[in-house]
């Protein structure tokens, strides 16, 4: 299928720590041997307290997150409180499962803090898998290898950010589809902050 020419690789990770979550993704977009972009953001802020990181077709992840941001705004107005991550993950899952036979080709990590820190992984058909840490994309195996080794429950924020960076950097070293720096989003009960690191 012609699709796969436009299916860039990627690495995105998410992990929980004591009081928050870290979501991170690298910044490369490559169509085959052609490196299209070295500064693509694949982490998205959906509400002040929930974010997402994606791998897959860029158009699909952008449409999905923009729709989610819109739906989240309406939902929040209706319920007059923050939307918990499980609820946002489920809403996203419904959008994806609706397209069961013509799916959005993207994998997503949803993470946030409303009450307690939570991470969910979604596949293109919309399965919702809760996790303490997760990775998606062509570099996921490498990133997971690192996190399987180093992840501990109840880490401090700094430790968690470093682990996310280490996981993505490890993937970047062996996955040609990933590279060009790392976008990091940290979410805790005070809200979310974003910054970019070199790979």
């Amino acid at each position: 299928m012609a699709y796969f020419e436009y299916m860039p690789g990627a690495t995105a990770v998410g992990l929980t720590f004591n009081g928050g979550v870290v979501i991170a993704s690298e910044r490369r977009i490559a169509y085959g041997n052609f490196l299209v972009s070295k500064s693509t953001k694949k982490t998205f802020s959906i509400t002040d307290y929930v974010g997402a990181a994606c791998a897959g077709l860029v158009a699909d992840m952008q449409i999905l997150t923009l729709q989610m941001i819109a739906l989240a705004k309406i939902r929040k107005l209706n319920i007059k409180r923050e939307i918990p991550p499980n609820s946002l993950a489920k809403m996203m899952s419904s959008l994806m499962y609706e397209r069961r036979y013509f799916p959005l080709l993207t994998q997503v990590i949803v993470g946030g803090v409303v009450g307690k820190p939570e991470i969910y992984t979604l596949d293109p058909l919309g399965s919702v898998l809760p996790d303490d840490y997760a990775a998606v994309g062509t570099g996921a195996e490498m990133a997971l290898g690192v996190m399987d080794n180093d992840f501990k429950e109840g880490m401090e924020e700094k430790e968690a950010v470093n682990l996310a960076l280490k996981a993505i950097r490890s993937a970047i070293m062996r996955d040609t589809a990933s590279g060009d720096g790392v976008d990091v989003m940290v979410i805790d009960k005070k809200g979310s902050r974003e910054f970019t690191e070199k790979s």
Binding site: R75, N78, I79, P84, N86, S87, A89, K90, M91, S94
Partner: peptide, 11 residues
Amino acid sequence: LIYDEPVEVET
């Protein structure tokens, strides 16, 4: 089913 949480009374 849609939101994965109990419905609110106001809703």
